[in-house]
Design a protein around this nucleic acid. Structure first.
Lengths: 340, 340
DNA sequence: GCAATAATCGAAATCGGTTTCGATAATATC
DNA sequence: GATATTATCGAAACCGATTTCGATTATTGC
C-alpha cells in the first residue's frame, strides 16, 4: 500500500509535522520518538513524494540537461556523452538527479526556459557546439543557474567549461613543427560551429607563433564533424593538386575521413601526409594507422561542470569559466613520435 | 515575475478552476473567456508547475531510465546509447520527458523502486545486459510499468525488447558455413552476462543445426565486452596451439581485441582466421580489416520499447516482449562476402 | 517548591494545481 | 410566459509535503 506522511504520523501516534521534521533532521524532536518513527518508516518503505516536497520548498534536486543545436547527435555524440557521464556521476554525488527534456510538444518550440520553470529544476547544463540559439539566450539571461559545455554562457547565474582550444591547436602545431613539417593544412566543420572556429583560430595563431606562414588553400571545411565530411574535404584538397605536409582535423572523424580519401588516392599516412585528429574517440585506437590526436579531459570537464553548477545553485559562486588542458596522444598517423 | 494559476485567474477575472479547465481542454468553458485567458497566458509566459500537477493528478509524464548492472558503462555504452537515443525521441513524441536516477544517496543502495515512487514516474525503462539484480526484481514485480532492454522482465506490468540472439548466431554460422568454414570458435564475456550467454547458446544451437560439431576448446571468455578482454581471450586461444577457421565474438570490441592479438602473432584476418563481431559499432568501419558484424536494429528497439511502455502505462497492453531481427553486415574480416 | 528556561510537539497555513458538484445564466420547448 | 434543459462558471476539498509559531511539558536554578 502506498504510504504518505499522514499515515506514518498516525501509525507512530505523532503529528505530520513531527514526521517531516524527522525526515529533514530538525533538532526539536526527541531521540525516542525519532527512533520510533524511523522504524515505522523503515518497515513500511515510505518514500516522500518529490512533487509535494518540490511544491513546498521550491527545490527539486533536479538538474535539466539540454542538448542544443543539432538534434541528431544527443546521446550518440562520442565526446559530449563522456562529459555527460562524468557530469552525471558527480552530480549524483552532490545529491541531484538528471532530467532530460524530450517532450516534443514543448521541445520542438525550443522553449527550454519554460521547461526549466515547469520542472522547477535547480539548475541546468547546456551541451552544444553550435552558436547560441535565442532559446538558450533566454536561459542564460534568467536566474536559473546554467553551465555550458563548449558553450560560452555569460549570464549572471551562468558559467561554462571547455577545453583550451588555443592550447589544443598549439600542441598540434608544436608536434608538427618538431617533426619537421612546415606546410600545415586544416580540415574544419561549418562556419557556424563555434568549436571548429575556435580551433581554427587557435591553429592560425599557433602557426604564426611558430614563425610559419599559413596557406589558405590548405584550409578546407566540411558540412559537419562526421567522417564523410572529412572524406569530402580531403578530396577537395587533393583535387587542387597541392597538398600540405601535415593536416589538423577539428575532429577525429573528420581525420578518419581524410585518411580514407588519401588512401583511396594512393597516398600514405603518415609518409605522404601526417594527420592529427581531435577528441580521442575510441575508434582512434583501432584504425589503420592508429590516429594521433588531442584528447580532451572529458572526465574533468564533467566534474568541473558539476561543481560549478553546484556552487552557482548554492550562491557560492558568481559564475565564470573553467578551461581545461588538453593532451597530445601520439599514435601512428604522424609517424614516429617523440614523446611530448 | 513568476506566474501561477491564481494570478492568471485574477488577471482574467475568472476563477482558478476555469483557468485549469482551459489548460486541460475541458468543454464547459465558453469560447470567449477561453480566448481571453489564453491571451493572458501567452502574454505572461505562464507555465504550470509540474510538481503541483503531479501532486494533484498522480501522473508525472516522466519516464525513469535505469542503467542496471555495470555502473561504468551508462552513457558511454555504444549499443545502449543508441537504443536510448531512439527511445528518448519516440517517448518525446508521445509526450514524455526522461529522468535519470543519479543521486548517489539513493542509487548506491540500488533502491530504484523507491526512486520511482518518489518521482511518481509513469513508467520506466531498464537497460542492462546483466542478470537481474534483486532491486530490479522489486520493480519488475511492482505495478509500475517497466520495459527491459536486453533484460527479460516478466512482471504483470512489464515487458521487454531485445534482438533475436538465436537469429544473430544463426546468421553468423550460416555466413561462415557458406564461406566454407567448418571449425568455429567463440569469444564471449563472463558467465553472468545474459547477452553473452544467449548468443553463445544460439551459436551452439546453430552449429548443430548446420550439422557441424562444436569444439569446446575453441570457446573462450573474457571479463567483459571490451577490447582488452577480446585480446586476452584470443591470446589464450592462440596458446592452446589449435585455432578454429572462424570466430564469432559476442561484441565488436571483443572482435577487435581478437584481431589485434592475431595480428600480433603474425596471423592474418581473414586469410588465417575469419572474424565476425556483434553490434556494429561505429569503429567497425574504420578498422583494418573493417569488421564484418551483426547489426542490431537499435532504432527499432528504442521505438518499440517506447510504444510498449506507452501502452502499458495506458493499460492498453498486458506486457510481453518484442524480438527484433538482426542484420549481417558484410565487410572485410571474413573475406569476400557473398551478399546474404 | 516555584519561577524561569529549554525541550518537545502539533495546529494550521501554504505551495500550485485538479476535480467534483452545485449555482446561476442562457436557451429551448410547448 | 412558465418550465425544462443546457451551457458556463466558481467554491471548496484535496494531493503530500514544509514551516512557523504557539502550547505544553520537562528541566533547571535558587
Amino acid at each position: 500500500m502506498q504510504m504518505n506522511i499522514k499515515k506514518i504520523a498516525e501509525m507512530a501516534g505523532v503529528s505530520v509535522s513531527t514526521v517531516s521534521k524527522i525526515m529533514n533532521n530538525y533538532s526539536d524532536v526527541s531521540e525516542k520518538t525519532k527512533q520510533r518513527v524511523l522504524e515505522i518508516i523503515e518497515q513500511t518503505g515510505y518514500t516522500p513524494s518529490s512533487s509535494a516536497k518540490t511544491l513546498a520548498t521550491k527545490k527539486s534536486n533536479l538538474i535539466g540537461v539540454i542538448f542544443a543545436g543539432e538534434l541528431n547527435v544527443e546521446f550518440t555524440h562520442p565526446f559530449f556523452v563522456e562529459v555527460l557521464n562524468s557530469f552525471k556521476k558527480q552530480m549524483g554525488v552532490l545529491g541531484y538527479d538528471l532530467i532530460f527534456f524530450s517532450n516534443e510538444k514543448f521541445i520542438s518550440s525550443g522553449d527550454y526556459f519554460s521547461r526549466c520553470l515547469h520542472f522547477h529544476v535547480d539548475g541546468c547544463v547546456i551541451i552544444s557546439g553550435q552558436q547560441m540559439e535565442p532559446a538558450i539566450q533566454d536561459l542564460d539571461r534568467s536566474n536559473i543557474p546554467c553551465i555550458g559545455v563548449d558553450l560560452e554562457l555569460t549570464g549572471k547565474k551562468s558559467g561554462y567549461v571547455m577545453s583550451d582550444n588555443y592550447q589544443i591547436a598549439s600542441k598540434v602545431v608544436e608536434h608538427f613543427y618538431l617533426l619537421g613539417h612546415r606546410e600545415l593544412g586544416f580540415i574544419g566543420s561549418t562556419a557556424d560551429s563555434d568549436i571548429s572556429n575556435r580551433r581554427e583560430a587557435g591553429y592560425v595563431k599557433a602557426i604564426a607563433g611558430f614563425g610559419l606562414t599559413m596557406n589558405p588553400n590548405w584550409f578546407v571545411h566540411g558540412d559537419d564533424f562526421f567522417e564523410p565530411s572529412g572524406y569530402a574535404a580531403m578530396k577537395q584538397l587533393i583535387q587542387t593538386g597541392s597538398l600540405p605536409q601535415a593536416i589538423f582535423a577539428a575532429s577525429d572523424l573528420l581525420a578518419l575521413g581524410a585518411v580514407r580519401a588519401l588512401k583511396e588516392h594512393g597516398l600514405r599516412v603518415p609518409e605522404d601526409v601526417a594527420i592529427i585528429g581531435c577528441d580521442d574517440i575510441e575508434a582512434c585506437q583501432y584504425t589503420s594507422p592508429t590516429l594521433t590526436t588531442i584528447r580532451q579531459n572529458k572526465e574533468r570537464l564533467g566534474v568541473l561542470a558539476a561543481h560549478m553548477l553546484f556552487d552557482l545553485i548554492n550562491n557560492q559562486s558568481e559564475g565564470g569559466s573553467f578551461v581545461v588542458e588538453p593532451a597530445l596522444i601520439i599514435r601512428e598517423s604522424c609517424g614516429s613520435g617523440l614523446n611530448r
